[in-house]
Design a protein around this nucleic acid. Structure first.
Length: 273
DNA sequence: CGAACCACCTGACGGC
DNA sequence: TGCCGTCAGGTGGTTC
């Protein structure tokens, strides 16, 4: 489901609506494969007051005034939504009831997502985050280009590699490669430094635009208020195999690269360049 | 180091 | 209608 823009939109929305609220009760609806049992999570977060909500990589972080932090990874279909109290539904995982009577819910159809909690100061030692590369919107594109310069791997595989740069998934990898005019199978070492820089500049532009448009909703994504995003209406290539290129009207092609369906324009993104 | 698989899990959709 | 294969926004592990 969510790549960087979607998690960022959720985090910003939640920060506005739940900051300062206290968790008054927790309901474990379905904790199977959630990385943390209800027995340990519930007593830790109960009666904690929310200090801020933010994002690192594709992880949604809710930090309490005590320094305790809950980390949600939404994977493909996870949702974290704030709204009025309601009954549990099919894919709900955990409910957090807040002191104004509202509900913060975590649900996940495919159950790939998880929540973990960390005591004050423990987050930095989380292996997952330690393996993560820099934030694309807080790093100059020249510095990002340096990270892939000379690598023999396909450029798309490197964009998707969270140790190279975080937050990029299949949508924003395909969209930034299109904007930069680069074929997804191109080996990074075949690309000049200026072209790599251009790619990361385009990536930054796509991510910023997607955040401004409330993220991309393909099937499951909704923001913290339960609303869909709009950036899917601005896609040039993602999911558009067989449609015409918005620039040159060539029929868009799709093939597997780095194990993911990759859609591109053979004319705007010529092979071997 | 890089790539190709498989796995986790549920649902939607197309073909027959 | 229903069964079957394929695909889906992510990541982690194995094997070559």
């Amino acid at each position: 489901m969510p790549e960087l823009p979607e998690v960022e939109v959720i985090a910003r929305g939640l920060h506005l609506t739940i900051k300062g609220r206290t968790i008054v009760s927790v309901h474990a609806v379905d904790m199977t494969r959630l990385s943390e049992s209800a027995d340990t999570l519930v007593p830790m977060v109960l009666n904690q007051r929310i200090a801020r909500v933010y994002r690192r990589a594709k992880v949604l972080l809710i930090e309490m005034e005590s320094g305790l932090t809950m980390a949600f990874h939404l994977k493909m279909t996870g949702r974290v939504v704030h709204g009025p109290l309601r009954d549990a539904e099919r894919h709900d995982r955990i409910f957090f009831v807040l002191d104004d009577g509202s509900l913060l819910s975590f649900s996940d159809m495919r159950k790939f997502g998880y929540v973990r909690s960390f005591g004050a100061g423990e987050l930095e030692s989380w292996e997952f985050l330690k393996r993560c590369g820099p934030e694309p919107l807080e790093t100059p594109s020249a510095a990002l280009a340096e990270r892939v310069k000379g690598r023999k791997a396909r450029i798309k595989a490197l964009l998707l590699d969270q140790s190279v740069v975080v937050g990029v998934g299949n949508i924003y990898a395909d969209e930034s490669l299109f904007r930069a005019g680069i074929h997804p199978e191109t080996r990074a070492h075949r690309l000049s430094l200026p072209r790599l820089e251009r790619l990361f500049t385009e990536l930054q532009g796509v991510l910023r635009q997607a955040i401004a448009e409330n993220g991309s909703s393909i099937r499951d994504y909704v923001n913290a208020d339960g609303d869909a995003g709009a950036f899917q209406n601005s896609f040039n290539v993602y999911g558009k195999k067989g449609e015409l290129c918005t620039v040159c009207k060539t029929v868009l092609t799709a093939e597997k690269v780095a194990g993911r369906t990759s859609t591109f324009c053979t004319k705007c993104q010529p092979k071997g360049r």
